[in-house]
């Protein structure tokens, strides 16, 4: 398996004649964890969808494990990458166990049923997210946070090389955010895979990501997290003053602690 899992070359995407992003070029290697940060509407989800092969009309090239995704089938891609996105609406009943087992879908041919290994992986993933007690529950009766953990567990059973996560922390309480993302990141590191996730919380980005993409139209930046993340860069990105907090050598960023006195910051459009 190649060292560079994802090679993005001059990627651009326009929707309704509006340029969302252009000329993004970055390489994701094994063991790396990337965070995508950016204000609403800058195309974070669109970028992930492009990388997942769901939006064919992008410009530039995307190479997944040395293969151009425009030339390989979604089934072949599904064995290489997992895509976790906003929760779908569950129209029909499905047990938690089956929802997690669904992640094994790309790995067996038409007439073959799930085997012992698939069941064992499912049990493992359920345990990892503390879902054993829920496994006979109907997914439609779960809370949003529980459903989110079920979807994360399903993604892990897919066992891809590259994990693409769209806002994995949404719906989760702070404790669950940390437990769930710790579990995902440890799993990714153990498998020597790579992870790319859209986050809204800078403190999660500084905790997990070694690389970041600050998505902001033509002013997008990407690279090493320690170099790129600064008060100035994040304040400009989110159009609100962001301040650094540091404790025991670990640094993170939060919006300025006091409420602003009514005047919008000068950088807000």
């Amino acid at each position: 398996m190649p060292e560079i899992l994802l090679d993005v070359r001059r990627l651009g995407f326009a929707r309704h004649r509006h340029e969302l992003f252009c000329d993004l070029s970055f390489q994701v290697r094994r063991g790396e964890c990337w965070a995508i940060l950016g204000p609403n509407g800058t195309g974070k989800t669109t970028l992930l969808s492009c990388l997942a092969g769901l939006l064919p009309n992008y410009r530039g090239e995307i190479l997944l494990a040395d293969q151009n995704i425009a030339h390989i089938s979604l089934h072949a891609q599904a064995k290489l990458r997992a895509f976790f996105s906003a929760l779908p609406f569950d129209a029909f009943s499905l047990t938690v166990f089956d929802a997690v087992l669904a992640g094994r879908h790309p790995h067996f041919p038409t007439w073959q049923w799930e085997n012992e290994e698939d069941y064992a992986l499912t049990c493992e993933a359920l345990a990892l997210f503390g879902l054993e007690a829920l496994r006979e529950r109907d997914v439609r009766t779960l809370s949003a946070g529980e459903r989110q953990r079920v979807a994360l567990a399903a993604m892990l059973t897919q066992q891809p090389q590259l994990y693409l996560l769209d806002e994995p922390a949404v719906h989760l309480d702070p404790g669950q955010q940390i437990t769930a993302l710790d579990a995902v990141c440890a799993h990714v590191k153990k498998q020597c895979a790579a992870l790319l996730m859209v986050l809204h919380e800078p403190h999660l980005a500084t905790r997990y990501a070694d690389h970041v993409i600050l998505l902001n139209g033509k002013e997008s930046q990407w690279g090493d997290a320690a170099q790129l993340l600064s008060e100035a860069a994040l304040s400009q990105l989110f159009h609100t003053p962001m301040i650094a907090l540091e404790k025991k050598g670990v640094k993170t960023f939060v919006p300025s602690l006091a409420q602003s006195s009514g005047t919008a910051s000068p950088s807000r459009r």
Binding site: A52, L74, H75, Q77, A78, P88, A102, T110, Q158
Partner: peptide, 22 residues
């Protein structure tokens, strides 16, 4: 023979697509 794909399709067409369902 498509039943396996249908099991994923019923969870949402985009989700099915990411799992490689035609």
């Amino acid at each position: 023979p498509q039943a396996r794909h249908l099991n994923r399709l019923v969870q949402g067409s985009q989700y099915a697509e990411t799992l490689g369902v035609p």
